[in-house]
Simulated scan of single mutants.
Amino acid sequence: MSAAGNCPLCNATGVTVIWRNDVLRVIGVDDPSHPGFTRVIWNDHVREMTELPAAARSTLMETVWLVEQAQRDFLQPDKINLAQLGNMVPHVHWHIIPRWTCDSHFPEAIWAPAPSRSAAQQQQWHARKAQIDTLLPVYRAALVDALSAR
């Protein structure tokens, strides 16, 4: 297990803390290529979901589902990708990634090389992304409200 002093999830840069409590935090990954990309991170250094007690797993997953629902409601993606990998950082966390059929990587994973796009396709994505960017503050505010109400 990594210590907090050298943990890239505990010491992350290029992220915005949207909400946190004593057990987890919800951060916005400020990646201009992937608007709305959000992570839910368990605060304690735990490697696997099954190392968490059942109630903690429920809390974590309820938060993931709440983030997904807020993305669907406010950002209206064509698809949402959920990923819980932790290969590089042994720290339980979930990626909640809204996807659009015109985004820079669709249908590939965001970690894969971006497929080739025509100028028209790139223009379509830039126009759609500009719309999404205007919705991000509304999404994040609604997410804070929903998380705080639990």
Rank of each mutant, 00 (worst) to 15 (best):
N6I: 08
A120K: 12
I27P: 00
V26P: 02
S2I: 10
S116H: 14
Q123W: 05
S33R: 15
P53E: 15
S118R: 08
A146G: 12
R39F: 11
Q121P: 05
R150A: 10
H91C: 05
A56T: 15
E48Y: 15
Q123S: 13
H45G: 03
N6Y: 06
H45R: 10
L9W: 00
P113E: 08
W111P: 04
L52P: 02
R72F: 07
R57C: 13
V144C: 10
A3V: 04
P35Q: 11
H126N: 09
E68N: 08
E51H: 12
H34L: 14
T63K: 04
L60R: 02
L147H: 02
H105Q: 09
S2Q: 10
Y139W: 15
A149K: 11
L9S: 00
A119T: 15
G28S: 15
E108I: 05
M88N: 13
C102V: 15
P35S: 12
H105W: 06
V40P: 02
L9R: 00
I132M: 10
E108H: 13
C10S: 01
L52H: 07
G86S: 06
A54P: 09
A114C: 11
V64C: 11
L66W: 01
P8E: 02
H126T: 08
W100N: 03
V40R: 03
C10Q: 01
Q122V: 09
A149S: 14
W19E: 02
H95I: 03
W100K: 06
N43T: 14
T16Q: 10
D22H: 12
V40D: 03
A141P: 04
T13Q: 10
T13W: 02
I18W: 00
T63Q: 07
H93E: 05
A3E: 09
D30S: 13
P98Q: 05
N81T: 00
A120Q: 13
H91I: 08
I110Q: 04
L24A: 07
P8T: 01
V29Y: 02
V23W: 12
K129N: 09
A56L: 08
